[in-house]
Design a protein around this nucleic acid. Structure first.
Length: 558
RNA sequence: CGGGCAGUAGCGCAGCUUGGUAGCGCGCUUCGUUCGGGACGAAGAGGUCGGGGGUUCAAAUCCCCCCUGCCCGACCA
């Protein structure tokens, strides 16, 4: 294809489609073409090598599962929405696997002794998640192949070891992909594990924000990131809160314009949430944003949503824009950035009125201090004196300490050395194959097309025969092809009867790392030309040494 | 699920306002001339105009319903 597909926005989408790697079937669903298949295979094989090297054993589990085991694990109801459920001819509930904890755990029930542990099992298998909004080519899809591994240990200490092994293997895998990953603390979400680390790659099209410290190693997903609070010294006020009229003012911004005393930093933002059915006030500094995931994680709330207007008016007697917590007897969660603040401004729970002179400690009944604010770029690091910045990233791997949720619900117990029955302690670890391809595409490209690293390139070398009708050129090209192939190099011969420019453009679009140009002009002098796609560097090699020299370079770069 | 944009040949697009039976570029086929960075000429092939219904003598074009894709948001193991 000469043109980018019109409906593509993301780089990986444009170039992978244009270069003939993938084709779309429907939203979030892609076919791999032969070129895409070759890259996917290389991704998979690198993952296999590294998984095997840390003691992983490869399996292959089914994609369609009985609904029953998902009911047992509790996920049948937990993940409503993206989990696809259907029935077979016998009216049995079935699901399409979105991951494979249940089935692997079921297999683990065969083990009965701590002597069978530890285990590390993995497979590369299709997952289906009915995402609300697939997008950005292969970055966010509904059907995809994932390497997922699962570890089984007698105790937390064992889990820690396997978790660390995965962390190292993942770093190694991604570095072989040519990607620099940032491991970040992440929220475990519905999984409820106690620790999880995501591997993030910086990319403009990434949809995950992470906070990274510029001086220490602190890095965390925005859903979890913390920041230190800069000290703010307020003017003291001995006065009780005073009402003042604020007709028509409904936003922090509008209120801030009333005067310096009401600047956003000096306002208390009052949000109303329904957490597991309980109406709860959440207070933040005016210029801070709530991080809903932190609220969910911090409260352990399963079902959490903003209150609607009726609920708010019913509970507080005013509409959003005039809300406050002074004198209110409701569960109240307060962000620590408000700790010790005095002389603040907040809503009076009466439309068009606010309060000033509010002293948090004196005037507000704090139910719980909980860090629930969203970290902003420029915030101080929670660990050191550094400053946090926010980066757009792609999540290409995620590792979880699962604990015993699945082993307990599905009955995977073993006897320990003292003869006591104990639930197996589990971990689960995932890498998306297609997403890895997309992330690499997003990282390595230019205006001419893709620039695959040698490790993932569909072909390592392309031999471009300028004039395939010229017998000498043709023979030289074929000879090189045979020689390189014989040395185990992944090589393709472009002897199509096309004009040279067409073949050059195609090689660049597809992103093959080395191009050997064979033409009459070079052959006269006994040379072939070498073009490195990555650097754009051109050089010449004697024809009879070219194969060996290039093979050497390729192998060094693998 | 809410908001926006779009669906016409394999790809990129025009035509729609003002109804008259579909066009351009690239690609494709054949022949010729070419041949070191997306060649040129000539002759061709290729279309249920996303689907259904309606209005009309007549619908790509007007009206109604639906489907699909992309982007933003909500959502997100």
């Amino acid at each position: 294809m000469r043109d980018d597909p019109a409906d593509a926005e993301a780089v990986n989408h444009k170039l992978l489609v244009r270069g003939g790697f993938i084709r779309q079937l429907m939203a979030g669903s892609w076919s791999l073409l032969p070129l895409g298949m070759k890259v996917a295979d290389k991704v998979s094989n690198i993952i296999r090598e590294e998984m095997n090297s840390i003691g992983g054993q490869e399996f292959l589990l089914p994609v369609v599962h009985p609904g029953e085991i998902w009911k047992k694990s509790g996920r049948w109801d937990d993940v409503e929405g993206i989990l696809v459920k259907f029935k077979d001819r016998r009216d049995t509930d079935l699901i399409l696997a979105m991951t494979h904890e249940e089935v692997f755990t079921l297999l683990a029930t065969e083990m009965s002794s701590y002597r069978d542990l530890p285990q590390m099992w993995y497979h590369l298998q299709t997952k289906f998640r009915d995402e609300a909004r697939p997008k950005s080519g292969l970055l966010r899809v509904r059907e995809f192949v994932m390497k997922d591994s699962y570890t089984f240990d007698i105790d937390e200490a064992g889990l820690d070891v396997q978790f660390e092994r995965h962390r190292e293997a993942y770093t190694q895998i991604f570095s072989r992909f040519g990607l620099e990953t940032i491991p970040v603390e992440a929220s475990s979400g519905v999984m409820g594990g106690n620790e999880s680390v995501e591997f993030m790659v910086r990319a403009e099209s990434g949809e995950d924000l992470i906070a990274v410290c510029d001086s220490c190693h602190y890095a965390a997903n925005i859903e979890r990131a913390k920041s230190a609070v800069e000290t703010i010294v307020d003017e003291q006020s001995d006065q009780q809160p005073q009402r003042f009229a604020t007709p028509g003012i409904r936003t922090i911004k509008a209120l801030a314009e009333v005067g310096e005393f009401a600047s956003a930093q000096r306002q208390i933002k009052s949000l109303v949430y329904i957490i597991d059915g309980r109406l709860t006030l959440v207070l933040l500094r005016g210029d801070h944003e709530l991080q809903e995931q932190k609220l969910a994680d911090g409260t352990g709330g399963q079902d959490l949503r903003p209150a609607n207007e009726d609920e708010i008016v019913g509970a507080l007697g005013a509409h959003p824009g005039s809300l406050g917590a002074v004198g209110v007897d409701l569960p109240t969660i307060v962000d620590p950035a408000l700790n010790g603040r005095t002389n603040m401004v907040t809503g009076a729970n009466e439309d068009d009125w606010h309060l000033r002179g509010v002293d948090v400690a004196r005037d507000i009944t704090v139910g719980e201090w909980l860090d629930v604010r969203t970290v902003q770029s420029g915030d101080p690091c929670p660990n050191c004196d550094g400053t946090l910045t926010l980066d757009n990233t792609i999540e290409i791997g995620h590792i979880f300490k699962l604990g015993t949720r699945f082993s307990e619900s599905l009955g995977a117990f073993v006897l320990d050395g003292d003869g006591n029955e104990r639930p197996i302690v589990m971990g689960s670890y995932g890498i998306g194959v297609g997403r890895s391809m997309a992330a690499v595409a997003e990282a390595y490209y230019d205006e001419s097309g893709l620039k695959w690293p040698v490790s993932l390139a569909p072909y390592e070398v392309v031999i471009t025969v300028i004039r395939p009708n010229d017998e000498e050129s043709k023979m030289a090209g074929e000879r090189l092809y045979e020689d390189l192939g014989g040395m185990g190099i992944d090589v393709i011969l472009d002897d199509r009867d096309e004009r040279p420019g067409v073949k050059f453009k195609d090689a660049e679009l597809i992103g093959i790392p080395y191009r050997l140009t064979v033409g009459p002009r070079g052959l006269e002098n006994g040379i072939v030309e070498v073009l490195e796609r990555g650097s754009g560097e051109a050089s010449e090699l004697a024809i009879d040494q070219a194969a060996e020299e290039i093979a050497g370079r390729v192998m060094a770069a693998r």
